[in-house]
Design a protein around this nucleic acid. Sequence first.
DNA 1: AGCCAGGCGGTCA
DNA 2: TGACCGCATGGC
Length: 265
Amino acid sequence: MDCGQVFRWDKADNVWTGVVQGDVVRAWQDVKTGLVYIDSRLSPAFFRSYFRFDDNLDCILTTVNKDKYMNEAIRSYRGMRLIRQEPWECLISYLLATAWSIPNIKKGILKLSRLFGKKIDEEHYSFPQPAALAMACESDLCDCKLGFRTNRIRKAAIQIIDGDIDLNELFELDYEAAKKKLMTMDGIGEKVADCILLFAFGKTEAFPVDTHVEKVIKNYYGDHEFFKEGMTKNKIGKWGRLYFGKYCGYAQQYLFYQKRLEGLR
DNA sequence: AGCCAGGCGGTCA
DNA sequence: TGACCGCATGGC
């Protein structure tokens, strides 16, 4: 929950508290049994999907465990899963993530929720609905200090309201087609599109190349034949999809997390 | 003070 | 295509 995928969970006294689907959720894990306990009005079936408990993690990690670097990341962080987020919230979150650190992304989302979401209890607010952001007057949005991201999220909200973009439709499209559609939106390039497809639409063949992953790949895999004519971010993405295969998104998340916690080796 | 943060869009060669 | 730049803001 703290690996940079989702931004609305916080830990206190070994209990994670998050806002999901307008509900305040508390979750903790028994260290000995590994069992996960969840206090929420949402159903167990919902959380099976949210935490992707139906993924056969051992099987997936075996398929992406191609070399000593991946083996090390898997050895250290085995158990980390992709999360299946709500598309709308994920879309806005990664529009905000552009050239921002993870703490800043969390703060930005918190500000948006406090201003445009619904109050759930004394300290928690739901993630704003598209209509709330679409109608947010310019000055209110500017109060959030989102910089150049402000217009991007308002535009996105309007496109959703107007039906120009139908997020549910993206589930039906394959990875390439869905990516192409997302990239028509202002502020969504390759990386942001890949994050949304991976974290909300379950497209594990997405391989987001951000600044961390770029450094990791250049450091560990720069001598691969594939890169003999240079290492652009675009090329690194293509390499990741080829090299790790249909679950490359999982590989990416393990490399990303390891890099953030340990730096380059 | 200067650089970096889960980048993107435009321009120019 | 690929390299470079401006874009807001915050933190170190």
